[in-house]
Design a protein around this nucleic acid. Structure first.
Length: 453
RNA sequence: GGAGGGGUAGCGAAGUGGCCGUAACGCGCUCGACUCGAAAUCGAGUUAUCGGUUAACACCCGGUACGUGGGUUCGAAUCCCACCCCCUCCGCCA
């Protein structure tokens, strides 16, 4: 079912270098090179809107140098090719070619030098381009940070409690399901051990989410590798810029996935899909590993910010003309899960300053956490348009037309930890028990509530 | 870990130093013929990318690409070295 271009796939395995085989063959495919060259103001605006510190003038310097070197070396190569053809002609006619050969003697050496300089110049341009974030879609609100995100809608009404409410971590511990202390002993901070009902609830959530995606929607369930190579991480945009956010194996160029988006989107790296195959949808439940560099002191209690958590992820490959429809569709899939779990939430559109690196437009779903008296992110649904498709070389071929980049989308649907947090806090009762959402009861062998010990 | 085979256009596949990369041949796709229409058949066409040029991803000129990197050579898909991936067999471990 997943027919892949093995040749291109193999190329991507030459890890660890920006100068990989695709770039060496001439393709500079991150942000659209032509766009940057011909409409630098578009990129400049995008960078400004994102508050990026990259400067388009730096690109122009690097690219100018690359082009100048290229022109020089190509002229020499042209000369060499013409002369070589003459040599061939002379030899065929059994004539003497030594004079010509002598003339060419130094040429290849000079070309080799220039080739080296050109390759360096190209990889400089590439390194710059690889750090350029995606250009926000026009419908993404311009803004500085999370305070300028735009609320789209709300669903459900936060419950009014007539007793002192507890936060989910404390509830989970006191009900005997969560053990942060043992996890800290086993590993360290930002890990948790789930026991009994909590472990069961996590499995129930995974199964419930996957069942919805595969039985009611069009997602194909996948069980991907949890560690991937450098090329794969680069394809979805985690590398080269966000290395510090990732866990990396010590003796291998392998990284633990921070989200199943990485293996799922790269499932089609190097492929040319049939236009009729679009849209294509995959989902997977995987652990996600994040170093949470730079978030010291944030969300130190509870399940909100872990080094390891389980998440069901949705990924869609879409036709460029259809991708924003697909974003609405996929976002709807995530919303429906929250509605079935009877959890109040709101939808916000992220502003340009708060969007992820690869996204052109992102909706966040924020679930109501009564103990924090606030909405907290539980799902993020993004349309990356052709950004990842360029980096990972994922194309489709229209009937009779030229291959073009697909659009990729990804969305959480949903993480188990934050879901459990919301279920515990929203479902808590005065007697210390927690009433589970009806939709989960069949997945919990009929258990309707978690009772205090 | 050992031995062998393989990686060439959207797919399959031929091609062992220049006349073979707009890459034989087949499939697919596009257009046309035939047909009331379709199938079948027949005919024609169909690589990507970079630079220059340009209003232009139109033409034209040039460069590059046969898994990746390097070497030999005036010239490499072809010869040499290293590495990656796939397949088969053996060993080892489940």
């Amino acid at each position: 079912m997943l027919d892949c271009a093995s040749a291109r796939r193999a190329c991507r395995m030459c890890e660890g270098r920006l100068k990989n085989c695709r770039s060496f063959s001439g393709a500079l495919s991150m942000i659209d090179l032509k766009l940057v060259q011909k409409q630098p103001e578009v990129l400049a605006k995008a960078l400004a809107d994102r508050h990026s510190d990259l400067n388009v003038a730096d690109f122009q310097t690097l690219d100018g140098r690359r082009r100048a070197l290229l022109a020089e070396v190509e002229a020499l190569k042209s000369k060499r090719n013409a002369a070589s053809a003459q040599v061939a002609a002379l030899k065929r006619e059994k004539k003497d070619a030594t004079a010509l050969l002598a003339e060419l003697s130094g040429l290849s050496e000079r070309i080799k030098e220039l080739d080296g300089a050109t390759a360096q110049a190209k990889s400089d341009v590439e390194a710059w381009l690889l750090r350029v974030p995606n250009i926000p879609d026009a419908s993404a609100p311009v803004g500085r940070d999370e305070t300028e995100n735009v609320e789209v809608s709300r669903w459900g009404r936060p419950r009014v409690f007539d007793f002192p409410i507890r936060e989910h971590g404390e509830l989970g511990v006191s009900l005997g399901g969560l053990d942060f202390e043992r996890a800290a002993r086993l590993t360290g901070s930002r890990f948790v051990v789930s026991l009994g009902w909590a472990a069961r609830l996590e499995r129930a959530l995974v199964n419930f989410f996957l069942d919805r995606h595969t039985r009611h929607e069009d997602y194909v369930e996948v069980s991907p590798p949890y560690m991937v190579n450098r090329g794969t991480m680069t394809g979805t945009g985690q590398l080269p810029k966000f290395e510090e956010d990732l866990f990396k194996l010590r003796d291998w160029e392998y990284y633990l996935i921070p989200t199943a988006e990485v293996p799922l989107t790269n499932l089609h790296a190097g492929d040319v899909l049939d236009e009729a195959d679009l849209p294509r949808a995959y989902c997977a439940a995987t652990p996600c590993f994040r170093s949470e560099a730079g978030s010291a002191g944030k969300d130190t209690r509870g399940l909100i910010r872990m080094h390891q958590f389980t998440k069901v992820e949705m990924v869609r490959f879409a036709h460029p003309d259809d991708s924003f429809n697909q974003l609405e569709l996929m976002c709807g899939h995530a919303r429906q899960l929250l509605e079935l779990l009877e959890l109040p939430y709101r939808v916000i559109t992220l502003c340009t300053g708060d969007m992820g690196f690869g996204s052109a437009k992102t909706y966040d779903l924020e679930v109501w956490l009564p103990a924090q008296k606030t909405y907290r992110e539980i799902s993020s649904c993004s349309n990356c348009v052709d950004f990842q498709a360029r980096r990972a070389d994922i194309r489709f071929k229209p009937r009779g037309g030229k291959a073009a980049f697909v659009h990729t989308l990804n969305g959480s649907g949903l993480p188990t930890g934050r879901s459990m947090a919301a279920i515990l806090e929203n479902g808590q009762q005065k007697d210390g028990s927690v009433v589970l959402p009806k939709a989960l009861v069949p997945y919990m062998d009929g258990v309707e509530s978690i009772e205090p010990r």
